[in-house]
Write a protein that binds this DNA or RNA. Structure first.
Lengths: 201, 201
DNA sequence: CCTACCGATCGGTAGG
DNA sequence: CCTACCGATCGGTAGG
């Protein structure tokens, strides 16, 4: 066995550990925010030593950045990827929104939408973590806008104000997540009504 | 001087202290959430002993509840009261929304909207604090709904879906607060466009 | 209102 | 990956 093979196996094990730790951190952050993610809590939950986790991520900020990245991958997997094969425009847009509703209704993370929880926590704290969250927010809004533009270009919608529609839809999504957390399940009905108003029933 | 007079003065001083402490706590919570409000931090900021603050509020949860109450009073003062003398219906509704925009644009609290920040923090934490926040949310939405119904009854609006309109407006307000915290000042323009779409320009 | 203290937890480091 | 430790801060209490 070569030195390289040993090193590769070590790197692989490290990557698996990192994945397991950040996946758990995403769940914690959805409930208690990214500041609620602590080395000690993760160590207890996953039966590893605290210093073991610190070796893998060095600082809390790097742990938070890795947690945001894992949340992004899970979100892509749950909401974006399942719609990938649908035609661009209105069909894909409505599928993305239905996937998003399932993502907060199930919910995928125990505290509901990871992005709603952490964006409100970090919006007044400039730095790399807030930048990563803002990037995800911009990417999601750009994805909605792209398919809205496709729909308009294909004549699937009237002469709608696309930028405003994305703002309204994204606003309603975040507000629906909060309402669901408070036990108000009617808000999904309101959300669908709002979406239908904008995109046509 | 009677014993009662001494007692009254003590109670007054206690009430003034409580007010000064919770007013500072509201500012902290707008930035760092209600869990970021700690006895030690308030003691440092206000040059009182930590135990002095603890004597006035006993537990952290009671301090948080008093903080929510002070935020409610300031919000009423800044957003609701200035519109009190305007006629019910569309005029008062638009004034409330403009006052709200000023409240987050100035901003009244250094971290922006107190309710957006704390609701996202507590929506997965059942208990008296979440209940108090949910009550404020319901009160605000009911206020908007009342004036929307007045406007409809007075024929100031078409046959609009009032419940949906309140949901859409409240959603956009919260999303605008986040956008402002991220430095995206264009969102106020989008918000006004969205409101005009619903209420007529 | 205060000083003084409690056990628990925090992020981080030393050293292996 | 580990044990063992650091100083700081947490909520809360004793006792005045």
């Amino acid at each position: 066995m070569s030195v390289t093979a040993i090193s590769d196996r070590r790197l692989q094990r490290g990557a698996r550990s990192r994945q397991a730790i950040t996946r758990r951190a995403v769940d914690i952050a959805s409930l208690d925010g990214l500041d609620g993610v602590s080395f000690g809590r993760l160590a207890d939950d996953l039966d590893i030593s605290k210093a073991g986790i610190q070796t893998l991520f060095r600082t809390k900020e790097q742990l938070q950045l890795a947690t945001v990245e894992t949340a992004r991958l899970v979100f892509l997997d749950e909401v974006v990827a399942p719609a990938r094969d649908l035609p661009s425009g209105l069909v894909r847009l409505r599928a993305l929104l239905e996937n998003w509703i399932a993502y907060v209704e199930r919910p995928v993370f125990p505290g509901g939408c990871f992005w709603t929880a952490t964006m409100a926590e970090f919006d007044s704290h400039p730095g790399p973590v807030r930048d990563a969250l803002a990037r995800q927010r911009a990417d999601w809004q750009a994805l909605l806008l792209r398919h809205l533009h496709s729909a308009i270009a294909a004549g699937e919608l009237g002469n709608i104000d696309a930028e405003l529609a994305v703002f309204q839809i994204d606003s309603m999504l975040n507000n629906t997540n909060i309402a669901l957390r408070l036990g108000n399940h009617d808000s999904v009905r309101l959300l669908r009504r709002g979406i239908d108003n904008l995109l046509g029933s």
